[in-house]
Measured scan of single mutants.
Amino acid sequence: YKIYPYDSLIVTNSISVKLPKDVDRTRLERHLSPEEFQEVFGMSIEEFDRLALWKRNDLKKKALLF
């Protein structure tokens, strides 16, 4: 996945969300650098992957990456 800054990946309720063209809309968190991922989620990507799907989705919603 290509890395993008968190600010360019957050999704708000506005209709005209302009995400970069090559971003996987269903896995926005994968486009964060490991350092920024840790900062946003408070855990590593590996720890995040071990969580239940509902928990990952809940965290993504709170981080505006859903």
Rank of each mutant, 00 (worst) to 15 (best):
E29Q: 02
G42Y: 08
K2Q: 13
K61W: 07
D24M: 05
D49Y: 08
F48Q: 00
L9I: 05
P34C: 09
Y4Q: 02
D7H: 15
Y6S: 01
D24R: 04
I45D: 03
M43V: 05
E39I: 15
R56Y: 03
K18H: 15
D7R: 14
T12Y: 15
K18M: 11
E39D: 12
R30C: 05
K60E: 01
R25F: 08
I10K: 15
K55H: 12
V23D: 01
S8L: 15
G42K: 13
N13C: 14
Y6D: 01
L9P: 01
N13P: 10
S14T: 11
K60F: 02
D58L: 12
V17S: 15
P20E: 05
S16P: 12
T12S: 13
Y1N: 11
K2W: 06
L64D: 09
F48Y: 06
F66R: 04
F41G: 00
S16R: 10
F41H: 00
K2R: 08
Y1W: 09
P5I: 03
I15P: 14
A63S: 06
L9D: 01
E36S: 08
R27C: 08
G42M: 11
K60W: 01
S16K: 12
N13G: 13
Y1H: 15
E35G: 09
H31W: 03
L9V: 02
V17G: 15
S8M: 15
S16F: 13
K61V: 09
Q38T: 10
H31K: 02
L9W: 01
E36L: 03
K55D: 10
F48T: 00
R50W: 06
P5A: 08
Y1F: 12
E29P: 01
L28P: 02
L51T: 04
M43H: 03
E35N: 10
P20V: 04
V23S: 03
L59P: 00
L19H: 08
K55R: 12
N57K: 07
F48A: 00
Y4G: 01
M43Q: 05
V40M: 04
T26D: 13
R27M: 09
N57R: 08
L53T: 09
D49S: 07
R30W: 03
F37M: 07
A63H: 09
R27H: 15
Q38E: 10
E29L: 02
P5E: 05
Y1E: 08
S8F: 15
P20F: 05
S44D: 14
L32Y: 01
K61G: 05
T26P: 03
D22Q: 05
Y6K: 03
H31D: 01
Q38P: 03
L51Q: 07
A52M: 08
V17Y: 03
K18W: 07
K21P: 15
G42W: 06
V11A: 08
L64N: 12
M43D: 00
